[in-house]
């Protein structure tokens, strides 16, 4: 039965890709493109660009992570490690071995993809909090290696990178980076929307509802969970590579447990199972601490209160709840 669904899924997926481009839901993508294009008008200086670029990078990771958490219903407390591996792969290959940046980025993505694939089966057999624990452990192990093997990673003080060079062009400056991150975010969202809209996405959602139920109707649940895990890990690795080149340095903290928790928080804060919710979550939790600086010593108190308040009053996340409100308001 499993194989039946599988066989019919492949051609349907290909047709789905083409059709999805013309669907109304791609309207969201258009709106996002518009926002990304117009936002620079409101960015007064390099610092504002910096915040926007970091928000964009977080958003890329969260859109990927949301496929796993929001759609496949599997939690990961180790995604920062994939981000970190991508970043370190770029850093190490370009600075120590003289690789061209795009090659290093691709190598990092492949490395993380293979690693994620290798661990996915045993790890994703676990459920709920046990899965969270396993991904957490995996992430911690990776960040310890990055911290310890200083002969290649630079240790706790991190690794410095040169400017990103592609085919002889040096990509530097905030405007260039804003463009790179903006386009990458759009591509990621496009990929995610198509994946969600394909039979794969339907299978994933069935999985989130009830895994046994999905198995009963013949969905190869393990296959789809692995797929979501690997895709989200590779997206995180690519974002990590970009971050490393943009920031010019990478430290083990970026691959650590706290960063993983932050990423999950962003996804849930914006609204699970919504690609745009993940973006809203990533952007708000990147910008918020910058605004809260004004509270000085009370900064974390205010941040904690905002997080609690949002989740209590908007249980399904900031974006999803507001969207629902807007819809019901329009109907009445």
């Amino acid at each position: 039965m499993t194989s039946d669904v599988h066989a019919s899924a492949a051609p349907a997926r290909r047709g789905g890709l083409a059709r999805a481009l013309l669907r109304p839901r791609t309207g969201g993508l258009g709106l996002l493109a518009l926002v990304i294009a117009l936002l620079p008008l409101a960015l007064p200086n390099a610092y504002a660009y910096d915040v926007a670029i970091n928000a964009g990078l977080n958003a890329i990771v969260c859109v990927g992570l949301n496929l796993l958490i929001g759609y496949a219903g599997q939690i990961s407390l180790g995604h920062a490690a994939f981000f970190g591996l991508g970043a370190y792969a770029s850093g190490i290959l370009t600075t120590r071995y003289g690789w061209p940046a795009p090659g290093a980025l691709a190598a990092g993505a492949v490395l993380v993809g293979v690693l994620a694939f290798a661990v996915a089966r045993p790890v994703l057999r676990l459920k709920g909090h046990y899965l969270a624990m396993a991904t957490l452990g995996l992430g911690v192990i990776i960040s310890i290696v990055l911290n310890t093997e200083s002969w290649i990673t630079g240790g706790p003080d991190g690794l410095m990178l040169d400017d990103l060079t592609v085919l002889g062009w040096t990509l530097a400056g905030d405007h260039t980076w804003y463009g790179i991150v903006g386009v990458t975010l759009l591509l990621t969202v496009w990929l995610a929307l198509n994946l969600i809209d394909s039979p794969v996405g339907r299978a994933l959602r069935a999985l989130h509802g009830t895994e046994i139920g999905a198995q009963v109707v013949g969905v190869d649940t393990a296959h789809y969970k692995v797929l979501a895990f690997v895709v989200s890990a590779v997206i995180a690795a690519v974002a990590g590579s970009l971050f490393a080149h943009y920031a010019g340095m990478i430290t083990p903290g970026k691959a650590g447990f706290m960063k993983s928790v932050e990423l999950v928080t962003m996804v849930v804060f914006g609204g699970m199972a919504s690609t745009f919710g993940a973006i809203v979550g990533a952007v708000s939790l990147t910008v918020l601490p910058q605004l809260l600086v004004a509270f000085e010593d009370y900064e974390s108190i205010v941040l904690g209160l905002i997080m609690i308040g949002t989740m209590v009053f908007m249980r399904r996340g900031l974006f999803v709840t507001l969207l629902d409100l807007a819809k019901s308001w329009r109907r009445s």
């Binding site: 390099a46 910096d50 970091n54 340095m249 430290t251 903290g253 910058q290 000085e296 900064e299």
Partner: peptide, 21 residues
């Protein structure tokens, strides 16, 4: 004064803020 919480990337962001903003 900005607090980077000990994180290198936050320190970089806040340094940009001091310089540019």
């Amino acid at each position: 004064v900005y607090d980077d919480g000990g994180a290198a990337d936050k320190a970089a962001s806040f340094t940009k803020r001091l310089i540019d903003s």
